[in-house]
Nucleic acid binder design. Structure first.
Lengths: 330, 330
DNA sequence: TTGTATGCGTTATCAG
DNA sequence: CTGATAACGCATACAA
């Protein structure tokens, strides 16, 4: 195989008339090197267009600066937003995001196993139900793990969580302020942490009578199914609290198709997450906003902390939320 | 620095009582090795839980099996779908997707440069306006480049394209079949290849009088802006051909808010791409469907081809499209 | 068919 | 402060 000519540290060293070691020390800012040599090395490196080979460095240092980003449902709006900010932030801090989508089919534990053999610097998990195998695998290889919106508590595994409690409080306060009499909770049967947690908080904090509609999926289709169940109720509720925006939007679409504008105007529907579509004219959904930016920033901050202090006790940082009141498209 | 104990080929070799070379040959299926030895090596490798170190292999082979996926607007629905299928397909074929989001701010050429130093096996670009620098950089390093829905034609750079021509034909045929008299084209002023190409094809193939509404952005906001301009027209058109689904949905939302159901029912609005929201009850958008699955499959197929035949002449594969007729939510 | 020896490009250690 | 040298873990030409 014909090997491609690359600019190597050796080349720079020769051009600058110094040793490889001096080059390494200069460019990694690690170790003593005289200003004179430093200048010569810099000049030579720039002229030759030298950049370190990350593979070689990774092999040597046992860490590649690659960060595995494990995520389910990439094509759901909110997740896509998370991914975008996570990858942007990682790059900004000189990590490289290796994206691992986890479908139902794919055996993601195998993929995770693969990650270990890249000497990844860390793994950020946004998947809904990460197999326990991931932890054992990562811990065994001493790879930092950051969990986003996950229940699981593990030693040395940091987490960043959306403030579901505050969000639910804001929503319930919203319904109370508007003197809602008959509330319906739309939730799902799946094992998504966010949904489970919000449902739990709801039932603990709610102080008015309510009914529950439970559907299988937590996406738009689930919302449609929920909307149909709403129509089957005897009489209309005046409040429908949906545990995420997709559910709310599905409900809205079904109700809009079957109910008059007047009737609909008296039903307050809310969501959770504030994904892009919540702001669309047709929905103008009142919902709880969680910032993907600060979520990403916090995740990467925790990752860096754990990389430099592998033995620190685990922490769980909570991301603030706010209520976004919209007029429901009226 | 305390180094983590890893299972290395040497360990396997000792456990199996053979040389490192025999282990390498067995596991990479490259070179001759007797069945007996092969079995012993396999057994030892399994028992010890050995997996090759991709960094070391990459350093040696000058290719890391990492594939850079460069993409703008991750959080747009259709792009997210592309990403999902691209990454899934890449993993399926034993590549690892390194995700590079390109914003307006970020200087992505720097990031691309970084990719080169991972000895990436290839780069797949879905960004709308990839800087020319990318090509020169990749070609210089002899890294395969696959372009998705891009105009740029470069030697040794393969492309996969959506069949915009057929799509436009289907749409115009649709309007003709329904005896549309007054058509409005909604397009943008940006330099997105898909939009530009579709607009060009439209003007070449259209055989009825039409008006043009041009907005700045090609996202939902652009659609809203377009919708407002539609309302300013003297009299309503009976057809609005939008060059992507986002534009169409924005237009629909504005018109729904201002026009009566009856008037709206006489306006045929169409999009392009068939993103998830096009199928939502509220929109039921007639649009041109392009399959992200086959797009991803084709991209990876071309990538593999170029990896094994770096000097092959470039090709452009076209992905078939179909018209998805929906009732517009009536 | 197998083992030996060498290179891949860095960084870290240890003399000088 | 600097330069030789040994890892890092793998693949492969070459010799046996």
């Amino acid at each position: 195989m014909s090997r491609i000519k690359r600019v190597t540290a050796q080349d720079v060293a020769e051009a600058a008339g110094v040793s490889r070691a001096a080059v390494s020390r200069t460019l990694s800012n690690n170790g003593y090197v005289s200003p004179a040599v430093r200048a010569r090395v810099q000049a030579a490196a720039d002229k030759l267009g030298y950049r370190v080979n990350y593979l070689a460095r990774g092999l040597n240092q046992q860490r590649s600066d690659i960060v595995g980003v494990v995520v389910a449902d990439i094509d759901s709006s909110f997740r896509a937003c998370q991914i975008r900010h996570l990858t942007e932030t990682l790059l900004q801090y000189n990590y490289r995001p290796l994206l691992i989508p986890t479908g139902e089919k794919r055996d993601c534990s195998q993929v995770i196993d693969m990650l270990m053999h890249y000497s990844v610097s860390g793994v950020i998990i946004t998947s809904d139900t990460p197999p326990a195998e991931i932890y054992t695998n990562c811990i065994e290889h001493q790879v930092p793990v950051i969990l986003i919106n996950k229940a699981d508590q593990h030693p040395k595994v940091d987490r960043v969580l959306c403030d579901n409690a505050k969000g639910m409080e804001l929503l319930l306060d919203y319904y109370q302020r508007h003197h809602c009499q008959r509330l319906v909770l739309v939730t799902t049967a799946g094992n998504s942490y966010s949904i489970r947690e919000r449902e739990h908080l709801f039932s603990r904090q709610v102080s008015m009578p309510y009914e529950v509609i439970r559907v299988a999926r937590h996406d738009y289709q689930g919302g449609v199914e929920a909307g149909q169940k709403v129509l089957e109720l005897t009489g209309q509720p005046d409040g429908i609290l949906c545990l995420n925006d997709y559910l709310a939007i599905g409900v809205i679409d079904v109700l809009k198709a079957s109910l008059s504008k007047q009737v609909l105007a008296n039903i307050r529907i809310t969501g959770f997450d504030d994904m892009a579509q919540a702001g669309w004219l047709n929905y103008q959904l009142t919902t709880v906003h969680q910032s993907c930016e600060s979520l990403a920033a916090t995740a990467v901050k925790l990752l860096q902390r754990r990389i430099s202090h592998p033995q620190a006790t685990e922490v769980a940082e909570v991301i603030d939320v706010i209520l976004v009141e919209r007029d429901g498209g009226q």
